[in-house]
Design a protein around this nucleic acid. Structure first.
Lengths: 161, 161
DNA sequence: CTCCAATTGTTGGATGTCAAACAAAACACC
DNA sequence: GGTGTTTTGTTTGACATCCAACAATTGGAG
């Protein structure tokens, strides 16, 4: 009665890694997290298709829309990016005509960031595709399971967030 | 009775992002996954301390130990890295004297990868620290919750893994 | 046997991220 | 009111990762 639960006795530590043994890696939370995030990232890119958008840039657009006029440092904090990492990302969005850096008049150091009309329009399309992507992501999960997953994720190292 | 469950009515979409609104981002699984992975990565690096080790390199050491002599392409597949990405990583491990590229005699294209004595010794220390790190990670979770978390992660886009 | 195709490790170019250093601007304080 | 400190956006340098292309080697078809 005290046997191990044997749920099929699969190789257990080889999986899709090409036959090589993975040792203790499958026992680490970070390992599974990394695989899941990679899978999500790939599916996101595929879902955006010819609209050519990454999760990070999409997140920036969403934050800008929700906080029009915020400055670069605030946007970087909200997007969990370094101030310096934001620069090339914003450059790209600006080059595509999706966002505008508007120099502040009260503080000439500050750029106020906002969506252009084209940015707002594209974001609307992107949101539809993201919704489909998200739906596919959780298609194997019930609503309760999805909620549980998010709740558990938030309870990992909560002091760091 | 069909009211929404109101579990405290917090701001819900501001959290630690510096006061900026996050729009629909907190409704996306990938968003929470990215935050959790970042937190884990940071804690991992801190846990390794002066031993100067990343999750990726640690994973490589573990795989090499479990599959001594495997070739670079196989190692890359197991570590979910591109063949070319493996090269600088292996260079670093080799420069630190932790692994050895041994040219095969049957097939002169192939390098057999294995741990050196120093690599084996360091890996032993690393494993202890990783164990502590992992323990801290899940300190807010019961064993069942941890298992549930891993199971749910594996059910996201399972066809991609 | 010869020649074409596949495999292996590597290089080079692109991207995304961070940390450190910097100039310009604003602020603080005496 | 002048001087030192802080803030802001940027530049630079360092990595890690991907993809495409490459030379060396092996294997296969005829």
């Amino acid at each position: 009665m005290s046997e191990t639960p044997r749920r099929k006795a699969r190789p257990l530590a080889a999986s899709a890694a090409g036959g090589a043994k993975l040792g203790l890696l499958p026992g680490l939370l970070g390992y599974h997290l990394r695989l899941a995030q990679r899978a999500i990232f790939d599916d996101f890119a595929a879902a955006m298709g010819e609209l050519d958008m990454s999760p990070g840039l999409f997140g920036m657009l969403v934050i800008i829309e929700a906080n029009p006029g915020l400055k670069q440092t605030e946007l970087a904090n909200a997007a969990r990016l370094d101030r310096s990492s934001l620069v090339p990302a914003l450059d790209k969005l600006e080059a595509r005509g999706l966002v505008a850096r508007r120099a502040s008049v009260e503080d000439r150091r500050v750029n106020g960031i906002s969506l252009t009309a084209a940015g707002t329009a594209l974001l609307k399309k992107l949101k539809q595709r993201v919704a489909r992507h998200e739906k596919r992501l959780v298609s194997n999960l019930t609503a309760g399971e999805r909620e549980t997953l998010v709740a558990l994720l938030q309870r990992i190292l909560p002091e760091h967030r």
